[in-house]
Write a protein that binds this DNA or RNA. Sequence first.
DNA 1: GAGTGGTCTAGACCACCGC
DNA 2: CGGTGGTCTAGACCACTCT
Lengths: 253, 253
Amino acid sequence: MGTTQLESVPEPKYWHLKTVLTEALDSEFSVGEILPNERDLAARFGVARATLRQALEQLELEGRLQRRRGVGTTVAPPRVGVAVGTEQHAWPGAASDAWQPVDCEQAAPPASVAAALETGADEPVHTVRRSRMSHGQPVATELLYVPAASVPDLTAIDTPSGAARARAVLRELQHLSLESQDRAVELGSARADDAKELDRLPGSPVLVVTTRFFAAGRTAALSVATYRADTCRLTFGDSPDVEIHHDPERRAS
Amino acid sequence: MGTTQLESVPEPKYWHLKTVLTEALDSEFSVGEILPNERDLAARFGVARATLRQALEQLELEGRLQRRRGVGTTVAPPRVGVAVGTEQHAWPGAASDAWQPVDCEQAAPPASVAAALETGADEPVHTVRRSRMSHGQPVATELLYVPAASVPDLTAIDTPSGAARARAVLRELQHLSLESQDRAVELGSARADDAKELDRLPGSPVLVVTTRFFAAGRTAALSVATYRADTCRLTFGDSPDVEIHHDPERRAS
DNA sequence: GAGTGGTCTAGACCACCGC
DNA sequence: CGGTGGTCTAGACCACTCT
């Protein structure tokens, strides 16, 4: 008797808040517009600031909002499509692949990288840093690991430093014939240095694209690219210029 | 004078906590082991429970931990590689593509889907639900939108319902010749129904893979697949069986 | 300096699981 | 039922940006 519990599954406040805010964003706000600050918003919805923030966090994760400390919260533009699968059967650095060489150092790679390269822990590896821009904003950073054995003609003498050295490594790489490659995408959180370069806070969600390049029966290079998950949609198709804008958090059909 | 601020950039507590916990996971714990509960852990580290949870949340996002309400926190196994790019030039449903038909209904799709299908809002669309398992665990759910025009021989009469109807739609799809396809990956948060099927809470981070199938100069089908971001690594390469286990949050080199 | 988002606290209660 | 993680509160202070 009595307890006709139609409210048996009360959805969390932050979830409901997110729904309300999503609808407001769709109907009442335009891209770039700044929202009221968190204290005001929380008061307006009658919740604690922490609860409001939980909703904002998810909306930022979904690419709907952009928050910047000291500035405010703004409505984010639709995610940019970033082509990741077009350079099939081409070495990194070939014919302008949207990446910009930044730096290069020869050092022992992390253990996980050494394992993937199937190389000894003592074998020297060139570590090339590159970055990628889109619409004037940095969208990705990359660490490209190239075993010294893959670029035998490159001596320590004739490689100056910094970007020039990075370009030299990439140039040497073109001499090998690429047999195949291998890609994987997973979710990660930004390291401190990547976060700085991507203009985000450490720990921000990122899409990590790991690519292995095979040549001469070996893993000739390994690329670990870190894309901003909030602003990027990685495209793999034959026509990378399309814009779908599918809502990652869509309402029930 | 005095203030020789070598501590000028104090890293947040939760960040430091995460580092400590990561190292502990690497050295002192094995897969499947259960951690102390959050209240004990927080007390042990001398922080508030909310602060500890912030660290745990990131570790779960990175696939290092698995938390389940009412049960506890356990050390997660390495992410499973899930092949996403092998069915090149093949229709969904062809020759066992790891997906299992669940359901099918004929309804008006969300606006964003209708736009991607370049179909009128009034044109009927078959919506096939499928799910994907790996290692006995559900890893993905999919909504496959097939405009009625793509499967003209399928009448409402001879399609029973549920999984059988889903299979019928997939079977009819094979009659078209697939011209090309298009893929995109982005971060999203799980809808309530997807979350339930993936054994996660609503809002959990997911990788949304949107695939468009082209035939006869049209978009003949649209697939929106939702993968658990904490447990999955999407693989696109020619050899999907490899295991890299690259640490998404790796320490400085 | 004023205003923003980011971090942190010490509590409370709830929803869920397994015994 | 007891124990777990999930939600929520009402504060406080900090780091940052802009003016």
